[in-house]
Computed example of a mutant assay.
Amino acid sequence: MDSLTQIVLGAAVGEAVLGKKIGNKALLYGAIGGTIPDLDVCLGLFTDTITAIELHRGFSHSILFSIFMAPLLGWLVNKLEYKKNLGWQAWTKLFFGSLITHPLLDAFTTWGTQLCWPFDIKVAFNAIFVIDPLYTLPLLVGCIGVACFQKNLKLRTRLNKMGLILSTTYLLSTLILKFYAHRTIETALKNQGIEYTTISSRPSPLNTILWNANIDTKDYYLTTDYSFFDTQPIQFKKYPKLREKSADLIKYTNIQRLIKIAEGWYIIEKKDGQWYFNDLRFGVIPREDGSSFFAFSYLLEEKERKIQATETPKNQRDAKFLIQTLWKRLQGN
């Protein structure tokens, strides 16, 4: 999830663990704990694009990391806050809670996370977009409210608890919404006589009303979207796999790494004399001129007998038009 969400989630967890004893400092240290797993993005400053993608949501997002880091942080903060006389165990509980909830939340997104590191098992429920106001707002309002009251007031505890309950209930409800949307798309495929091997569904940005899906067939991928307000039949768009044209590129090690990152959902295409690797898991972004492009696309360049990948940039104008298009589409077809 986005940084703000992880900060307020960590703060709310910190408040739930030690708020009655240390007041607003529980929010502060919880927020710090909720931020720490995402510091792995800093590694991207010292390595190439592909390695940076592989490292993100890896070790720092694992259960093992939370288990080992929590006591270390607990011991350190206990030394800094020695006047509180809480003992390292109490601080450890705070940091373990704020650390472990970070990857657990990320597991609900399309990116997923490596909870079971060092085992190569990626957990991704594809149930919530990385930015979802309906999940974040209850936590944010709760934390702001908590900060306005003294630590010994019952209202403070109730506000924080309510924020956690509302956000968690919404998060769990996304699994039910996903199940319904997924089944609806499967039924449409069956009714239209389309044979396929795999289907992957996920929510569109900022909401859980409009859902996108990728469908794998023998020679091409299908994409579609479905809103709970739709009244017309679901339609599918074809994207040829183009495997034969990119056969020579697929042999490169870095291309194989990208294919693994994309979990097999990819198209390699040549545009304007240059090769691009498109990760299909995050769909396409429309442009005002009627064209569209894949949300995550990488320019491929051969240097020193190796393939280097560079993510193609997105601009604010595309993002603005995307929001407008999403708002219109989620109201139904």
Rank of each mutant, 00 (worst) to 15 (best):
L4A: 05
Q6I: 10
E15R: 09
A16N: 01
A16D: 00
G19A: 13
K20Y: 14
K20I: 14
K21D: 06
G23P: 11
L27Y: 01
A31K: 00
I36R: 06
D38P: 11
L39I: 14
D40M: 14
V41G: 03
G44K: 04
F46G: 06
T47N: 03
D48L: 07
I50T: 05
I53Q: 05
R57E: 05
H61V: 11
S62C: 15
I63M: 12
I63C: 12
P71L: 07
L72P: 09
G74W: 09
V77S: 06
L80G: 15
K83P: 09
K84Y: 10
N85Y: 05
G87Y: 06
L94A: 04
L94D: 03
F96C: 06
F96K: 04
G97D: 02
S98T: 11
L99C: 10
T109M: 05
T110F: 03
D120C: 12
I121G: 04
I121Q: 05
F125S: 04
A127P: 07
V130Y: 02
D132C: 08
L134I: 14
L140E: 04
C143T: 07
A147H: 03
F149D: 05
K151E: 03
R156M: 11
N160H: 04
K161Y: 09
T168V: 14
T168E: 04
Y170I: 09
L171Y: 12
L171M: 15
T184R: 00
I185A: 00
E186Y: 15
A188L: 15
L189R: 01
L189D: 05
N191W: 13
I194D: 03
R202E: 00
N207Q: 12
I209P: 02
W211L: 00
N214G: 09
T217D: 00
T217K: 02
Y220C: 09
T224M: 04
Y226C: 07
D230I: 01
P233Y: 13
R243D: 12
E244G: 08
S246A: 15
R257C: 10
G264I: 13
I268G: 02
K270Q: 12
Y276R: 06
D279I: 06
I285E: 02
I285K: 01
P286T: 00
D289I: 15
G290M: 04
S291M: 08
S291R: 07
S292V: 01
S297M: 09
E301P: 07
I307G: 01
Q308V: 15
Q308A: 08
Q308E: 14
Q324H: 13
L326W: 12
W327P: 00
K328E: 14
R329S: 11
G332F: 14
